[in-house]
């Protein structure tokens, strides 16, 4: 668990805002959405790295950058040492084969006019995964892998439930025998009991196929359950990253602490120990100066309003981007 498969280095991405003629004339700066602001992390072979944060924090943007759906303005993403956005690498579609993505919405992520058989055989044919004659066998193997009955091959997406569609999405990704899977909110659209089925499937597949997984989700309980390591993102920046159990048992960043305590526990007597975060997520159009979290933080000092804390390793814990991580006691 040491070799990094994917290295993300200081990635920045801003979506350009529309500028009207009036804006240009009055010399107003364009209103860009700063989705990612210097994100760096390594994805190590065989691990599951969880990425958590609230909506709009940039976690899905990060996932989409990794599979080249978006191109960062700055920074690089290295796959086995090569920058995937370099011109020669871009032409190489084998990267897309080796790093696959699974999507959140079970309804829009499958082409409504294609049967499961067409969806899977297209993937197998385009990447020449096996001989033409072996395709049927390969497909029934895939259906087996995602635990769908064989007759599902000749059905259209609208004939399946949400959980079954996600299984087809997983089968499509696995058809091309990837090394890395990016799971963007894979189960958040599903009912709890179906969520558990899909999570179990993912854990099982990871072990059998030795997959490396980036698990993006907003549900902390799920992320805690599936991840070896976890990164907490706030306004396009990693504020804390570290070993999953350590981080969840002992969060160091005030935002991680608040996020954890806000998740509703199943224990009715667990009320009242909450850290209440005041206010809401600032708009990514206008990220506050200094520490982006200072406007909602209970522990802020004048330093926090001016100086951006860097991600730094902490003894016995992961890395934290907070000036006062040592002084802040856990609740």
């Amino acid at each position: 668990m040491t070799e990094a498969v994917l290295e993300i280095k200081d990635v920045n991405l801003a979506f350009k805002g529309k500028r009207t003629v009036l804006d240009v004339l009055s010399n107003r700066p364009s209103r860009d959405v700063h989705a990612l602001n210097g994100v760096s992390l390594d994805l190590r072979r065989g691990e599951t790295l969880g990425v958590v944060g609230e909506s709009g924090c940039g976690k899905s943007t990060l996932a989409r950058c990794i599979v080249r759906l978006y191109e960062p303005n700055d920074g690089e993403i290295l796959f086995q040492g090569k920058d995937v956005f370099e011109a020669s690498e871009r032409k190489d579609r084998s990267y897309n084969r080796r790093v696959q993505m699974m999507f959140q919405d079970p309804y829009s992520s499958l082409n409504p006019r294609m049967t499961t058989r067409q969806i899977l055989s297209e993937a197998l044919k385009v990447h020449d995964m096996c001989k033409e004659v072996d395709i049927p066998e390969k497909m029934s193997g895939l259906m087996d892998l995602v635990q769908l009955p064989e007759d599902a091959l000749d059905k259209y997406p609208h004939e399946f439930s949400g959980g079954q569609r996600q299984r087809i999405g997983i089968a499509r990704a696995l058809a091309v025998e990837p090394e890395v899977l990016i799971a963007d909110e894979l189960v958040s659209a599903l009912d709890v009991s179906v969520q558990a089925q899909i999570v179990n499937l993912l854990l099982d597949l990871q072990e059998r196929l030795q997959l490396t997984i980036l698990f993006v989700a907003h549900d902390l309980r799920l992320v805690r359950h599936v991840s070896n390591r976890v990164a907490v993102i706030y306004l396009g920046r990693i504020v804390e990253i570290g070993d999953s159990e350590t981080l969840f048992a002992n969060p160091s960043h005030p935002y991680s602490q608040a996020l954890l305590s806000a998740a509703p526990s199943l224990d009715p007597d667990d009320k009242g120990k909450k850290i209440h975060l005041e206010g809401e997520l600032p708009s990514p159009l206008d990220i506050p100066p200094g520490c982006p979290f200072h406007v909602r933080c209970r522990h802020k000092t004048p330093k926090c309003t001016t100086e951006l804390p860097r991600l730094r390793p902490l003894d016995g814990r992961g890395s934290v981007a907070c000036h006062h991580a040592e002084e802040i006691e856990n609740v």
Partner: peptide, 23 residues
Amino acid sequence: MTNDYASAGIVMGYSDLRIIFRH
């Protein structure tokens, strides 16, 4: 294009023409 099946086509490494005309 806002549907993820189009994104999935890109992620699967399909050619642009395949995504446009097949999907």
